[in-house]
Amino acid sequence: MEHAKHRFRLVNPDRLRMLMARTGTGAAITQRALAAEVGIPHSTIDHLLSGDVRTQPAEVAYDIARVLGVDHLVLWAPTGRSIPADGATPALAGTP
């Protein structure tokens, strides 16, 4: 897929944590369960939540959002000219 080459930056680790506490089904999901559903190491979720890792390949970003039951843009911003893969994330509308 074309979007597989692109990376997405997590908008806010606290938002990921909040959505894990109450997914689209209303249930909580653990870091290990989310990682297993997406097919990634559970340490990846831990690193996203701690802020040690900020970006993921498009397919991982889409899968995390799908498992949580939200649109991917609720959690992720595509990297590029206006959103760098590293460094501070510019203020995005609706981002606390």
Score class of each variant (00 low, 15 high):
37 E>M: 09
39 G>I: 06
64 I>P: 01
60 V>G: 04
47 H>P: 00
45 I>M: 10
11 V>E: 02
14 D>K: 11
86 D>W: 00
36 A>N: 08
6 H>D: 12
54 R>Y: 09
67 V>D: 00
91 A>T: 13
49 L>Q: 03
90 P>M: 13
60 V>C: 12
53 V>P: 00
46 D>P: 00
49 L>R: 10
92 L>N: 07
42 H>D: 13
29 I>W: 01
89 T>M: 15
29 I>C: 03
7 R>C: 15
75 L>C: 10
91 A>V: 13
37 E>K: 12
89 T>W: 09
88 A>Y: 00
64 I>G: 02
2 E>V: 13
49 L>I: 03
82 S>A: 09
9 R>L: 05
65 A>V: 04
16 L>R: 01
8 F>W: 13
36 A>V: 02
59 E>R: 14
42 H>R: 14
34 L>N: 02
32 R>W: 07
42 H>Y: 13
96 P>M: 08
91 A>G: 06
54 R>I: 11
61 A>T: 03
79 T>K: 07
21 A>E: 15
69 G>C: 06
57 P>C: 14
43 S>E: 15
73 L>I: 10
20 M>V: 04
20 M>G: 01
60 V>A: 11
67 V>Y: 01
33 A>H: 04
87 G>S: 08
13 P>Y: 06
24 G>L: 06
44 T>H: 10
58 A>V: 08
50 S>I: 09
92 L>C: 08
41 P>E: 10
91 A>P: 00
82 S>P: 00
59 E>Y: 14
87 G>W: 07
16 L>E: 03
92 L>M: 12
22 R>K: 15
52 D>I: 12
65 A>W: 02
43 S>T: 15
39 G>P: 04
69 G>Q: 05
89 T>V: 14
59 E>V: 14
34 L>V: 02
63 D>P: 04
40 I>S: 00
2 E>K: 11
69 G>F: 03
71 D>V: 08
45 I>K: 06
58 A>W: 11
79 T>N: 08
94 G>L: 13
78 P>R: 13
22 R>C: 14
36 A>C: 04
90 P>Y: 11
52 D>W: 12
25 T>F: 05
37 E>H: 13
25 T>V: 05
71 D>W: 07
81 R>Q: 09
5 K>A: 14
76 W>T: 04
33 A>S: 08
31 Q>A: 06
8 F>S: 03
39 G>R: 09
2 E>M: 12
91 A>K: 10
29 I>Q: 01
96 P>W: 07
76 W>M: 06
31 Q>I: 01
7 R>A: 15
74 V>Y: 07
79 T>D: 07
54 R>C: 11
46 D>W: 01
65 A>L: 06
91 A>L: 12
49 L>E: 01
66 R>C: 05
32 R>L: 11
89 T>G: 07
52 D>K: 15
2 E>D: 11
16 L>I: 07
86 D>F: 01
73 L>E: 15
